[in-house]
């Protein structure tokens, strides 16, 4: 192959990887609402399901799925734990999926961190793949607790 054609293929490879990366980054951290009672099956969790001795939040529970090999999970843990502390009735749980294939398969988890946002009844109401967007989580919390907390630091 002549160098010009080879260079074209190399540039196409870079362009393709760039498009893939932009698409990946676009999807990161977005809260996707889950319709309650929707057909996309298992959408309720209990503390026993995730092996937690801590009861779920009265209003909202943030269930974070992590593994031991996850660069962004510790940062996500700090973010979500802080948000949970700032609101009454909100609990954050961190579940290591390394030894919980059942949970990973049940919810089709393809990346860590993935966060499920549960309402007071333990129903999955939203799902966030990747490091959550702080504003998006606050919006979900406002929505699920039926209030706006203008006084809380954002």
């Amino acid at each position: 192959m002549n160098p010009i054609s080879a260079l074209s293929i190399v540039l196409a490879l870079v362009a393709g990887a760039t498009v893939l990366g932009l698409y990946w980054r676009f999807r990161q951290g977005r809260s996707v609402s889950v319709t309650p009672g929707g057909s996309d099956a298992p959408n309720a969790l209990s503390p026993a399901d995730v092996g937690s001795r801590v009861p779920f939040g009265a209003r909202v529970t943030l269930v974070q799925f992590s593994t031991s090999h996850c660069a962004r999970c510790p940062g996500t843990q700090v973010l979500l734990a802080g948000l949970a502390r700032s609101r009454p009735g909100v609990v954050h749980l961190d579940v290591d999926l390394t030894h919980r294939r059942d949970l990973a398969n049940r919810f089709g988890i393809l990346q860590t961190p993935t966060t499920l946002i549960l309402d007071g009844a333990g129903q999955v109401r939203a799902r966030v793949g990747g490091v959550p967007n702080r504003a998006g989580i606050l919006q979900q919390l406002d929505h699920l607790t039926g209030s706006t907390h203008a006084q809380l630091a954002r």
């Binding site: 979500l80 609990v91 954050h92 290591d96």
Partner: peptide, 14 residues
Amino acid sequence: MPSSPVDSPSRPSP
């Protein structure tokens, strides 16, 4: 409300 890492004591990976 406290945040609780459900199984942080049981991560023995070297």
